[in-house]
Amino acid sequence: MKINCPLVTKVLARFICEETRKTGFNQVILGLSGGLDSAVCASLAVQALGSRKVVALILPYANLDPEGLAQAEKMANLLKIKVSKIDISPQIDAYFSAFPTDNLVLKGNKMARERMSILYDFSAREKALILGTSNKTELLIGYGTIHGDMACGLNPMGDLYKTQVIELGQYLKIPDEILTKKPTAALWPGQTDEEEIGLTYAELDQILFRLVDLRQSPDEVSQAGYDQKKIRRIIEMIKRSEFKRKMPPIAKISSRTVGHDFLYPYDWDK
């Protein structure tokens, strides 16, 4: 699962640079959470376009994750990128005072979509293409909010497992405190990804890598020494989250239909 970091950096920097130009933007924007994924993504963007063409938004909910906030600020300073901080608590609180709930997932999804909404607004204001920060692990198991943190104009790290993002982060010299802290979506105090998913990233990525990249059957993965229950659960997560990775289905009625047989490239004439 090791990756050739200099090559991956070169390819992803080129990808950001070329796709930004093709979409007619000359800068990019992304949300900085203080976590590793957005730190690596920002660092790749700076390699691709230079620090003056990268805009970061730090979008805390009041004082929910002070550590993340400090690390996001540190990262922005380190990369010398433009940064704005917007507290999303007024809009979130206003909404939940009208529609109260104790469900933390509902609250988390709402926050993720509020951040998306602000990023898209600033994308238009700043004329900057939105970089997504979802990694391959999250995309495969659906650990992300549809139309929330999964929404973006370009997703440079979507083919890198979390453990590979960590490897790339070390190569890009992301500060140790960001590299070593427990990954968290920070949707409620003390939340960690691994606890919520119920697997460590190391184990999850190994199983995913075998199932997806090596195309091994569940039996083959289990023969390699992985727990059958965990394998089954991961397959279930992949299955149940397919809707997050696709455009919604359209019923085929006419002879030519968007998504079925009206098929044009994304990079058409660019």
Binding site: M1, K2, I3, N4, C5, L7, V8, V11
Partner: peptide
């Protein structure tokens, strides 16, 4: 198109 980056040496896929 290039594919495969698991060899840690080398300048290409």
């Amino acid at each position: 198109p290039g594919r495969g980056v698991s060899k840690t040496e080398g300048q290409s896929f």
